[in-house]
Every structure is written in structure tokens, then in C-alpha cells.
Amino acid sequence: MKQTTSSFRQLLAKCLTLLPVVLALPILGYSATAAASFTSAEQLIGATETFLEEAVTNYLQRSEIHGRHEIRVNRLDPRLRLALCDVPLTTTLESPAQPLGRVTTRVRCDGSAPWTVFVPAEVRLYRHVAVLTRPLKRLSIVKASDLSMAERDIGQLSQGYLTDPAQVVGKKLTRQLNANQVIAPSHLEAAEVIRRGDQVVINAVGANFSVRMPGEALTDGAPGEQINIRNLRSQRVIRARVVGPGQVEVAM
């Protein structure tokens, strides 16, 4: 009798040891089946990242834009349940027209259980743009020593930017700017290369001739501007286009 009781206790202890495993098997089996029947968030994110990487690379090559880009796909709702697609997913750009900034992609399954989902993302493009190395007041003429080229996310530069120092050097500021501030096109205007009272050379250009004569500037002028010039030979006041320091042109 004692031997029977001891055997029963050993058997009962063994059953109790295996009980958690036996109970877990249906749960684990159910979870694996459920996970296999849905398209995972990782698959949607992967499809979006792959599509955007190719789209951004092609766009930059077509536009001849040199820069570094980053792609960040937003987190998806964990409650999202989409049937597992039996064909490769199709991804297209929903908005905007170009794959830059905040974008929305359309991920679509065209299989036996079709569905469509929109995945938001952000594409950041970093380029080297002109920034000031020191504060400058309004009407200051920008020198090469006032500039440096720094990497910035151009998606954050709503006023625009400049990528060539030649677009900045020699220009006049329309407003005061701080050190490390990105220079936008609206911050610049052409600086005067002729001042009132300057002695200039007037180039009168016709179809078959060109005549040079001395003149005096009556107003300041930047390249391309029309200013008043006094012809020192005839004393007549004419309108002439500024072409450079001490040089104006009149079309005859």
C-alpha cells in the first residue's frame, strides 16, 4: 500500500510539471497562426522604405541635385489587421508630387483578398547651403570671408537657400542677418557698382557700329539697372544700362 501511494505521488508530481507546457501549446499555436494570416507592420514599413529609397534616388539624379537624404516611416496603428497578401505589394506615391518632405504612400495588395492602406513618412534632404560666419547689418556687401557652406535640411528652409557662394558674394543685404543664419534669395539684392558723380564710359551700340564717350552718373546703379547719365560731350541726359563698374550701355 505504501509503495502504491508513493508511485501515485510521483506520477501526480510529473503531471503537474508538464501542465504549464500542455496549457501553453494551444495559445502558442493560435498566436503563430494569427500572425501568419496578417500582413505585418514591418512588411508595410519595409515596402514603403524600399519604394521611397528608389523614388528619392531617381528624383535626385533627374534633378541633378547633390545631397544626403534620410527616410523615416511613421509608426503604424498596432491594431491594423490586413490579410496576408498572396502577391507582391504595390507601392506608389500618393502625395506630394515629389518625394521630399512629408509624404504619403499608397501600399496596395492586388491579390485574392485585396486591400489598400496609406503609410505616412518623411523624406529629409540635406544639402550644403550658404550661411553667414558673422552678423551683418542691412545694406552690408557680403564678402567671401563672410560665408561658409553648411549642411542643412532644406525641407526646413521655407524662404529658400543658395548652394553657390558666387550667388552671394558681392551682393547687398536687404536686412540684418545673424551668424550661422542661412542666406535666402530674398535677403540679397545687387549692389551698386556705380555711384552718383562717378565718371563712366558710355558705350553706344548700334547694328553696325559702336561708339564710346565719357559720361557722369547722376544716380546710383547696380548691374542691369537703367540709370541717368550725363553725356559730357553733348551735356544731354540719357538713360543707360549699367553693365559693370564704370561702364554703361545705350542701344541705338
Rank of each mutant, 00 (worst) to 15 (best):
Q43C: 07
L76R: 06
N180P: 00
H187D: 15
Q43V: 06
V201M: 08
L18D: 02
G224L: 11
T174D: 00
I227N: 02
Y30M: 05
V129T: 05
V123G: 03
K137Q: 12
A251I: 08
P165E: 11
Q176F: 04
L11D: 06
Y59S: 05
V243L: 07
L60I: 11
P245T: 14
G246A: 12
P185A: 06
A207P: 02
S37D: 13
L188V: 08
A83R: 11
P88K: 10
S63H: 10
G155F: 07
A13D: 02
I71S: 00
R81V: 14
R134M: 10
P88R: 06
T91I: 06
L76H: 03
T105E: 03
Q235D: 13
T17V: 15
S95T: 15
A130M: 14
V103S: 01
K137I: 03
V193L: 09
A130V: 10
Q159N: 11
V22Y: 09
L162I: 06
V129K: 12
R81S: 10
T105L: 03
P88S: 03
L136F: 04
D164R: 13
L232W: 10
L28W: 15
V117Q: 06
L23S: 03
G206W: 08
P223A: 04
L80G: 05
Q199E: 11
I154H: 02
A34D: 06
Y126D: 01
V142G: 05
A35Q: 10
L11R: 12
Y30V: 00
A179Q: 12
L44M: 12
T104S: 11
D198M: 04
A222L: 05
F8D: 01
I229V: 14
Q43T: 14
Y126H: 06
F209H: 12
P78T: 09
M1T: 13
P165A: 11
T163E: 15
V248T: 05
T50W: 04
T57R: 15
G244S: 03
T91D: 04
V73D: 00
R241Q: 09
L82R: 11
A217W: 01
G224P: 01
T39A: 08
V211W: 03
T92M: 08
G155Y: 06
V117Y: 09
V182Q: 01
T92V: 08
V129S: 03
Q98S: 07
Q181C: 02
E216A: 07
A34N: 09
G111S: 04
